[in-house]
Amino acid sequence: MSESHWIVKQKIEIPFHYTPGPALLRFLEGLRDGKLFASGVRGESRKTVPPLSFCGRSWKPADDWAELPGTGTLESFAVVPHGMAELPQEGERIVFGLVKLDGADTCLAHLIHTKEPGKLKVGTKVRLRWRAERSPGIQAIAGFDLL
């Protein structure tokens, strides 16, 4: 019966222009320059990455900046059993991870490079790897290698 059902196909393209604002602009410029920045409220220990210009918890400006060393801890991950043309990979699988960066209280989502994803554990220590050619975006980072 399915051949008797008509399907009308349409396509809608939605353009999008992102405005980073002052805090994320500094973060993007840092990525371009090979530096990783976090921000927080002065006098408070909490730091977020990517940085916020304003903390919604204490309702204060988040203008206390810190440069992070690029090491961190794997908090969560997913192993995709095939490659994707858009993403660089080592081995046959792609691993996405949430990495809690040393010096920050939030996680950054990125690729985890390993040839043995079966051995990954929550708590694995990792280090950020920059791309040789960087544009001001998240792809300036190649991903994280296991320490």
């Binding site: 992102y18 405005t19 210009s53």
Partner: peptide, 12 residues
Amino acid sequence: KRTDINLRELIT
């Protein structure tokens, strides 16, 4: 066009 701040900052 408020290009100096992002959506979150506009609301704030």
